[in-house]
């Protein structure tokens, strides 16, 4: 196994891990979004509750396995990201006096750790509001009601939307970068991947952001 540790611990190996975990998390976002969009069904949360109960069921072994994998990969993605950033920062002790970074790289590519950091804070709050209570205990109100209550608070919704904007920034660079890291780079294909990555980031995050706005505007029943 020494070779495997060496591989994932090398500068390139770490990035490959970052890319693989990132892409997995991106796929999770699609599934998560699909479920959440049931909130907008306009049925007072009936379908959403069915879905939520199905997912929270302790006996649902496949979901439990994926859930554990998801947390492990998420944590690895975060720790690995912090490690990479810390090594990269240490590679330059004395900073430049003047840096004209916008001349050669995008804003999104330079602030992955910052956007990631805010997404992490968001995740902690998000999990505390919905995941932990409904996964490990049985609150009195339904999950739909909990969501409705939370999102009718402008502060909560505002933060949610803000986090989605940063998630879009993160994905905008992350998705296309992951493909590059995994070895897909081509004059013809890369521009398509980049555009698709941007579209993915915008669509996913916009769709997520619609949900709190929907409740904030009092459209939830």
């Amino acid at each position: 196994m020494g070779w495997f540790i060496k591989f994932i611990d090398s500068s390139i190996g770490k990035k490959i891990v970052m890319a693989l975990t990132g892409l997995f998390l991106s796929i999770f976002l699609i599934a998560h979004l699909a479920g959440n969009l049931l909130l907008l069904a306009g049925d007072g949360g009936v379908k959403f509750e069915e879905y939520a109960n199905f997912m929270a069921e302790s006996g649902n072994i496949p979901v439990r396995i994926v859930e554990i994998a998801l947390f492990i990969l998420l944590i690895y993605h975060i720790i690995n990201g912090i490690r990479i950033t810390s090594i990269n920062r240490k590679a330059r002790n004395i900073k430049y006096k003047k840096v004209d970074a916008s001349a050669n790289s995008t804003f999104f590519s330079r602030f992955m750790i910052q956007s990631g950091g805010i997404i992490f804070i968001f995740l902690v709050i998000h999990l505390r509001s919905f995941f932990f209570p409904y996964r490990f205990s049985h609150p009195e109100i339904t999950m739909y009601e909990a969501v409705k209550t939370a999102f009718e608070n402008p502060l909560y919704s505002g933060f949610y939307v803000f986090a989605m904007v940063l998630l879009a920034f993160h994905l905008n660079h992350g998705v296309q970068s992951a493909f590059q890291t995994l070895g897909l780079y081509d004059k013809k294909i890369t521009p398509i991947i980049k555009k698709t990555g941007t579209a993915f980031a915008i669509i996913i995050c916009l769709a997520f952001a619609i949900i709190p706005l929907y409740f904030l505007m009092g459209m939830g029943e």
Binding site: I12, I87, A91, R92, S105, S109, M112
Partner: peptide, 13 residues
């Protein structure tokens, strides 16, 4: 002690 590439593509630019 070089850092790792995060695909900002500044080098190529």
């Amino acid at each position: 002690g070089f850092g790792s590439c995060t695909n900002t593509e500044a080098c190529a630019a």
